[in-house]
Design a protein around this nucleic acid. Structure first.
Length: 118
DNA sequence: TCCTTGACTCAGA
DNA sequence: CTCTGAGCCAAGG
């Protein structure tokens, strides 16, 4: 897959993430499932790896993307290796998202319901 | 070209 | 519900 296609995909991810309202969170897999696979990617490959691509997109996201609202399917914050603990949790708490004592979010309560097919 | 790693997920205990 | 382990395909060294 060429770099250009990947950038386009990243841009789509960011666009989707920007639609997550304040006080809500979404999972990597959820974001991925809302987007169409990049060109030249088989459905199987997409299913298997899209969550990590979303992660990759987050790693390179612009400042106007609320990356902190994207967490893993367990409701926990995932950080890139070596990346020190950021204040992602504080950012979310400031938006009204509640973390339990194990730094976990109750997805059944804060999970973003999707683009609402506006 | 080969080998390791990955902001993940799902199934099984 | 929580903890472990295996697997997914591509990118990067």
């Amino acid at each position: 897959m060429n770099p250009a296609s990947r950038m386009v995909y990243y841009a789509e991810v960011w666009e989707m993430v920007r639609q997550i309202p304040v006080g809500r969170v979404a999972t990597y897999g959820q974001i991925a499932s809302l987007l169409y696979p990049p060109e030249g990617i088989t459905p199987q490959a997409y299913k298997a790896f899209s969550p990590r691509w979303v992660g990759g997109a987050m790693a390179a996201c612009p400042d106007d993307v609320p990356w902190q609202r994207v967490i893993n399917s367990q409701g926990k914050i995932s950080l890139r290796r070596g990346e020190g603990q950021t204040n992602q949790r504080e950012l979310l708490e400031a938006e009204g998202v509640i973390f339990d004592e194990r730094e976990r979010v109750d997805l059944s309560r804060f999970r973003w319901s999707g683009p609402e097919n506006k």
